[in-house]
Amino acid sequence: MNRADQVRAEVSGVLFTPRWVGLTAAAIAAVVLCGLLGFWQFERAQQLRHAEAAALAAPVPVASLVAAGDDASGTALGRPVVARGRFATTGQVTVANRTDAAGRTGSWVVSPLLLDDGTAVAIVRGWVADPQDPAAAVPAGEVEVTGVLQGWESFYRGATGVGAPTAISRDLVADRVDVPLRGGLVLATATAPAPATAPAPVAITVATPTPGWPLQNAAYAVQWWIFALFAVLLWARWLRDDLRRARADAAGAATPAPARSVEQT
Results as ranks from 00 to 15, higher is better:
Gln6Met: 14
Glu10Thr: 08
Val14Lys: 03
Thr17Glu: 04
Thr24Asp: 05
Ala27Gln: 06
Ala27Arg: 04
Val31Ala: 13
Leu37Asn: 05
Leu37Val: 11
Phe39Tyr: 07
Gln41Ala: 11
Arg44Phe: 09
Leu48His: 14
Ala54Leu: 11
Pro61Gly: 10
Ser64Met: 09
Ala76Trp: 01
Leu77Cys: 07
Gly78Phe: 08
Val82Gln: 15
Gly85Leu: 02
Arg86Gly: 05
Arg86Cys: 09
Ala88Lys: 01
Ala88Leu: 01
Thr89Glu: 03
Thr90Glu: 04
Val95Gln: 10
Val95Ser: 08
Val95Phe: 03
Ala96Ser: 09
Gly103Glu: 15
Gly106Asp: 01
Ser107Lys: 02
Ser107Ile: 05
Val109Pro: 02
Ser111Cys: 00
Leu113Val: 04
Leu114Val: 08
Asp116Ala: 13
Gly118Ala: 13
Val124Lys: 04
Val124His: 04
Val138Leu: 04
Pro139Glu: 00
Pro139Gly: 01
Ala140Asn: 00
Val143Arg: 00
Gly147Pro: 00
Ser154His: 14
Tyr156Lys: 13
Thr160Asp: 12
Ser169Gln: 15
Asp171Tyr: 07
Leu172Tyr: 11
Val173Pro: 06
Val177His: 00
Arg182Cys: 12
Gly183Thr: 03
Leu187Ser: 02
Ala188Cys: 08
Thr189Met: 02
Thr191Ile: 09
Pro199Asn: 01
Pro199Phe: 03
Val202Pro: 00
Val206Tyr: 05
Val206Arg: 08
Thr210Pro: 09
Thr210His: 13
Gln223Arg: 12
Ala228Val: 01
Val232Phe: 12
Leu234Ala: 09
Trp238Ile: 09
Trp238Val: 08
Trp238Asp: 14
Leu239Gly: 13
Leu239Tyr: 01
Arg240Thr: 10
Asp242Cys: 13
Arg245Gly: 02
Ala248His: 09
Ala253Asn: 14
Ala254Val: 03
Pro258Tyr: 07
Val262Arg: 10
Thr265Ser: 10
